[in-house]
Structure formats: structure tokens, C-alpha cells
């Protein structure tokens, strides 16, 4: 009986032990699972961060590319103006197309003025030269008539 009791107790103890063990096992299993999930989450977050960063970099590159194109475009336009006015090429950000067009117009206007001025001087010179020739010619005209 005592044995029986002992046996029964032992069985109980065994059972309890078993229960305890399985509980422990279960708990460990659960913990492991939790860890795994956390790790997974962390990895995903990291990936997202990296992706985000990459996207950002890409955008930045694109923006820079565009800026470069714009600058080149402006520069080209400026070159066409035969750069009379010195423009700070570094400060191109401050310029837009409209301003450039206005500059272009001003430039054309200026060229026209300059041409008109040059031609005015040319005209005056050919007129004066003709008059000077004639003034001298008149002096020798009587001699010519004697011939």
C-alpha cells in the first residue's frame, strides 16, 4: 500500500514532471517562435529602410541629371547669345527660360543697334570721302577743261 502510495505518488510525480517538462518545452517553443518573428520583422524593416534609401538616391540622381540638362540647355542658349554679358554659370539656378528669352531679345536689340551704328559710321565715311574727293577735284576741274 505504501508502495502503492509511493507508486501512485511516483506516478503523480512522474506525471507532474512530465507536465512540467512539456510545459517548459512548449514555453521554449513559443519563445523561439517569438524570436523568429521578431527577427523576421527586423529584417523586413531593414529591407524597407534600404529600399527607401535607394529610392531616395535614385530620385536625387534623377534630379541632378535634370538639373544638369537644364544647365546645359541654358548654357547652350547663353552661348547662342554669344555671351556679351558675363553670367555666373554657377548661378544658373537663378535663371529661367523667360529671363533668358528676355536677355536674348535685349541682345538682339543691342546687336541691331550696334549694326545700325556701324553702318551709320560707314555711311558717313563714304559720304565724306566722296565729298572730300570732289572738293579736291573741283580745284583741278578748270585745268581739265583746258585740255
Amino acid at each position: 500500500k505504501e508502495h502503492e502510495e509511493a507508486l501512485a505518488r511516483r506516478t503523480i510525480i512522474e506525471k507532474k514532471k512530465e507536465a512540467a517538462e512539456s510545459a517548459l518545452l512548449k514555453k521554449e517553443k513559443e519563445e523561439a517562435q517569438q524570436r523568429m518573428i521578431r527577427a523576421e520583422e527586423a529584417r523586413a524593416a531593414e529591407a524597407a529602410r534600404v529600399a527607401e534609401q535607394q529610392k531616395k538616391r535614385e530620385l536625387e540622381r534623377l534630379r541632378q541629371e535634370q538639373e544638369k540638362i537644364r544647365k546645359e540647355e541654358l548654357k547652350k542658349q547663353l552661348d547662342e547669345l554669344s555671351l556679351d554679358t558675363k553670367i555666373d554659370v554657377e548661378n544658373l539656378e537663378d535663371l529661367d527660360s523667360n529671363q533668358l528669352r528676355a536677355m536674348k531679345l535685349a541682345q538682339l536689340e543691342k546687336e541691331k543697334r550696334e549694326m545700325a551704328d556701324k553702318l551709320r559710321i560707314t555711311g558717313k565715311r563714304i559720304d565724306h570721302l566722296e565729298r572730300a574727293y570732289r572738293r579736291e577735284e573741283v580745284k583741278i576741274l578748270p585745268q581739265d577743261l583746258e585740255r
Binding site: 558717313k124 565715311r125 559720304d127 565724306h128 570721302l129 565729298r131 572730300a132 574727293y133 572738293r135 579736291e136 577735284e137 583741278i140 576741274l141 581739265d144
Partner: peptide, 23 residues
């Protein structure tokens, strides 16, 4: 054709500034 010799014309061209002032 002009009665001025080549030299005379050259002289006039050289002194054009003077003529120009008068004109």
C-alpha cells in the same frame, strides 16, 4: 573717271578726319 591721281586720293583718305570735321 576721277581726275585725281592715285596719290592724291590716298592723301585725301589719309586726311579724311580733317575733311570730316569740316563736313
Amino acid at each position: 573717271p576721277t581726275m585725281l591721281s592715285k596719290e592724291e586720293q590716298k592723301t585725301i583718305r589719309k586726311n579724311l578726319r580733317e575733311y570730316s570735321r569740316q563736313f
